[in-house]
Each structure stands twice: as structure tokens, then as C-alpha cells.
Simulated assay, not measured.
Amino acid sequence: MNSETLLEDSRIENFSVMPAPADIKGEAPMSEAASAAVRAGREAVRAILERSDPRLFVVVGPCSMHDPVACMEYARRLRALADELSPSLLLVMRVYFEKPRTAVGWKGYINDPFMDDSFQIEEGMRRARRFLLDVAELGLPAATEALDPISPQYLGDLISWTAIGARTSESQTHREMSSGLSTPVGFKNATDGDLDAAINGIISASRPHSFLGINRYGRSSIIRTRGNPHGHMVLRGGAGRPNYDSVSIALAEQALTKAGLPANIVVDCSHANSFKKPEMQPLVLADVAGQIRDGNRSIVGVMIESHLNAGNQSIPKDLSQLKYGCSVTDGCVDWATTEQMLRDLAATVSDALKHRVAA
């Protein structure tokens, strides 16, 4: 063992070469139908943020994806509901492949698609792209959380809305990445409820940046961005307290205005806003709908964690024991509850939305 070996990669087990983004994309190329759906979804979210479209956008779906069969069944149901509610709501399916962890745990479908600690990331990326393509070909826009800064090179062309999570809103890496994403980006407030991380993230992402990354051919590259003008705030509660109430919304509006930013707010009905109790999400949404009905104009979207079946489950050693259509991460409301929540939301806000105009 020479001195160079001792000084470099001393804790690396091995390197496995990952196919380049262009190769993965070549295996599951963008179709015309998928391209149209992604483009329409992005344009609709941008129009909502710019106030030329008075509707709300709703990011709704499983906390994380682990079973593409169940999630595709969910996507078909959501697609059918999207047409019915389109006069008031733009439905965007939540498709989360990567899960941040406070300590340890399953890191998501891309990292470990077989849920057996085999970490077949190459296969996870292939399957994730195939799933997103299938969703887009239904005519349904998709949303995801950008956690790994390399993943957007593989999947970004199939995404219509991106979230930066509470743990990464302060990250320079994620702010730089967001400045180059082709989607609108929602920055969540910090886990302690602080709004500054999200506000500074929005400001930073709106500026041009230069940073190291990879290009579509997998080559290490200096990426130079133009800046993303469609950053906005996502309120998810923090430090065990909700921040979706009218006072918290007003404070967020004031903070955004003080920073010279548009008062565009998305409310996450899950996480600390529902005390991580999925059955409380309908109460959060009803409160938010009431605020819009009563004249609030800053709330432009909501997020809901929802699956075919309610609650969540631990990952068993025997994967055949997994309950179909039930989350393996945060708890979700079931499909029947989701339908009722969305129909109630549309009915409550439809008249108020007709009066929304660009400032």
C-alpha cells in the first residue's frame, strides 16, 4: 500500500460506474405525449405563480414511492379526478423517489429499489424514469423533491414542480441546483419553523450561479445557470407547531414582502402542520380553504400526503408481507378521503378564485 492510497479513498469500499444521464434517457426516451404533459404542467404552475391563472395547484400523492404498481393505480385515479376539478384546481402527482433521513433508514426507491439493502442505484434510476414517463403519458404532471443534486440530470425533463425540503433549504448546493432547474421550485421553511432559510433560498436560487456538476454525458462540468424566477415558499410547520393559520400566513406574507418577493405561499398539510397525524390533514386543508374563501390571495397551492390506503407501515423482512398501497414512510390519508378533501376544496374556493387577479 503506497502513501497515495493511504491519503485518498481510505474509507471507500469501491466505485461502480453509473450510466450517463444520456444513456438512461435513451432507454426511456421522452414521448410527444409525455413532453406535452410536462410542458403543460410547468406552464400552468408558472401561470398560477404569476397570477395569470387564478387556480390553486395541489401536489398530492404518496409520501414516497416504493411500489410502482400501486402508485400507477393511484396516478390513474388522480388523472380521472384532475379533469373533474380542473376549473379550480391543478392536480400534480407527488412522486418522491428520495427520502432525507435524520439518522438512518430506507433512503428511497432510487437508492434501494428492492428494499433489501442491495442499493442497486442504477436500476432504481432506470425504474424511476420509466415510472415518471408512464405518469406523464397519462397527461398528469409530476412533482418531486430534489435531494441528490445529480438526479435532475436523469429525471428533470419529466418533472413539472420541485420541492426543496426543510433540511436542505439552507444548503448552498441545493440553492445552486435550484437556480438551474427548469421547473418552479418551492422552498420549505426550516424544521424549527424559521422562514429565513426558505426566503434566502428563494433569493439565492433566483440569481445566476456557477458550480460543479455533471452534464448529460456524465462528464464532470462547470454548470453556469441563469437563475430561477419561480421560487416560492412552502409552509410545513416546525418545532412541533403548525404555521398554516391565518396569523402565520400573514407573517409569512410580510416576510416575503419585506424581502422584495411575491407573496406566493404553498401550505403543506402534512408534517408539523398536522403533527404528523395524517387524519388531521383534512382539518388543515379545510382551514386553508376557508382562508381563501374569505379573501386570502397569497395561498397559491397546497400539498397532501395521500395513498390508496391510510396510514403507514414498517418495511418487513419478508417483503411479501407489505400491505398494498400503503406508505412505508410518513402516514397518508386514503384515496376516499383524498377525493373528498379535493372536492371539498374545489367547492369552497371556486367562487373566491374567480375574483383573483394579478397584483
Rank of each mutant, 00 (worst) to 15 (best):
3 S>P: 02
11 R>T: 13
13 E>Y: 12
21 P>I: 01
22 A>W: 03
31 S>F: 08
32 E>C: 05
35 S>V: 00
38 V>W: 01
42 R>E: 02
51 R>H: 13
52 S>N: 08
53 D>W: 01
56 L>K: 02
59 V>Q: 00
73 E>W: 00
76 R>Q: 15
82 A>P: 02
88 S>D: 09
92 V>P: 03
101 R>M: 10
114 F>R: 12
116 D>W: 02
118 S>A: 11
127 R>M: 15
132 L>R: 01
136 A>R: 00
149 P>L: 12
150 I>A: 15
156 G>D: 00
158 L>R: 03
165 G>P: 04
166 A>L: 09
166 A>F: 11
174 H>C: 06
180 G>P: 09
185 V>S: 07
199 I>S: 02
204 S>E: 13
207 R>C: 12
209 H>C: 10
209 H>I: 11
222 I>V: 14
228 N>H: 08
233 M>E: 05
238 G>I: 04
250 A>Q: 13
252 A>D: 07
259 A>F: 15
264 N>S: 14
274 S>W: 09
276 K>G: 01
280 M>E: 12
282 P>W: 01
286 A>M: 03
288 V>T: 10
291 Q>A: 05
304 I>S: 00
305 E>H: 07
315 I>G: 06
316 P>R: 07
322 L>I: 09
326 C>E: 14
336 A>Y: 03
344 D>Q: 13
347 A>P: 03
353 L>Q: 05
359 A>Q: 09
